[in-house]
């Protein structure tokens, strides 16, 4: 009653299971990235369907100085990421702890809260564009009840970035909430009970038990969210396309314009590489910071 010896398919299983994904990565992510590096040191233009490539790293470097949109884009992105992510973490965390203490309809509340993540960002952009509308948007209607406004939410350079951040907060608080809520629910209940027997009030339980135990989950939520925030494109594209002027120009929008509106592939590529380095170094620093905190 011997079994057949392992066949070829079985013996090579470790390899053919890994291979397809690796091929996809090489062809569609590694190669494009190398391509990007090449492009960033070349001038690269499409004219009549024919590519003209010349190796000229200095040309693209020169654009850095000549690009008036670059500085506002970087500044806006940093403000956007910092403010939006901080707000989202604070609200999401408060929400997660609050909902975990709800005794009834917990599941329903969770389902309602996570709705915004499911909406296509483009639809979020168009929804909020309607709500922000100067003439008939719900916000100005609301203000007019109190005899205020109207405010040109997206058209006024003073409000535009804040309005965009507001949309991002609406969109992504649910994401933070979902991760932290799962973490709160997963906390060992005996630890919390022990603290209460030790005489801690609810606020003290939160302060001394729940928050410290949530630290790893908060770090994960922060990292994930910060990565995504750097990539933000869709909603802002719909809401303002970076305007008015450069008030809401984010780095991803700027890249898009350089690549596809100005057709400046070489500079676009160099800019892309710069953005990648920015994101990676930001994450390395923040990771160092969160890990350093853990040891303390």
């Amino acid at each position: 009653m011997r079994h057949q010896p392992a066949g070829l398919i079985d013996r090579t299983f470790p390899y053919w299971s890994l291979l397809p994904a690796v091929v996809v990565f090489i062809v569609l992510s590694l190669y494009p990235l190398l391509n990007l590096l090449m492009m960033s040191v070349s001038t690269y233009r499409f004219e009549g369907g024919v590519e003209h490539t010349t190796f000229d790293p200095m040309a693209n470097l020169r654009y850095f100085g000549e690009d008036p949109g670059l500085r506002p884009a970087i500044v806006n992105t940093l403000i956007f990421v910092f403010v939006a992510v901080s707000l989202e973490l604070a609200i999401g965390l408060a929400l997660a702890i609050t909902v975990s203490r709800v005794s009834r309809y917990k599941g329903l509340i969770r389902t309602l809260i996570i709705l915004p993540i499911l909406v296509p960002p483009v639809a979020i952009g168009s929804m909020w564009r309607l709500m922000y509308n100067y003439d008939f948007g719900v916000f100005n209607q609301f203000l007019s009840v109190f005899g205020l406004g109207p405010v040109n939410w997206l058209g006024d350079g003073r409000f535009a970035l804040a309005s965009v951040i507001m949309v991002d907060v609406w969109h992504w608080v649910p994401f933070i909430f979902l991760i932290l809520f799962a973490a709160v629910e997963g906390l060992p209940s005996d630890v919390v009970e022990a603290a209460r027997i030790d005489g801690a009030r609810q606020a003290q339980v939160t302060r001394y038990i729940v928050l410290p135990l949530l630290r790893p989950a908060i770090a994960v939520a922060f990292t994930f969210r910060a990565i995504l925030a750097f990539k933000t494109f869709d909603e802002v594209f719909l809401l303002t396309s970076g305007g008015p002027g450069t008030a809401t120009e984010l780095i991803s929008l700027h890249l898009y314009k350089v690549f596809f509106a100005q057709n400046n592939l070489g500079y676009g590529a160099m800019l892309s590489v710069t953005v990648i380095l920015m994101v990676v170094s930001f994450l390395l620093v923040s990771r160092r910071a969160t890990q350093g905190g853990k040891e303390a």
Binding site: L28, P32, M39, E51, S252, F259, V275
Partner: peptide, 20 residues
């Protein structure tokens, strides 16, 4: 590589993809 790739803003890769 997965981690690095996940960090890269998608829009930066659209250019090379377009060419490929």
């Amino acid at each position: 590589w997965l981690l690095l790739f996940h960090m890269i803003p998608v829009i930066t890769l659209v250019g090379p993809w377009y060419l490929i």
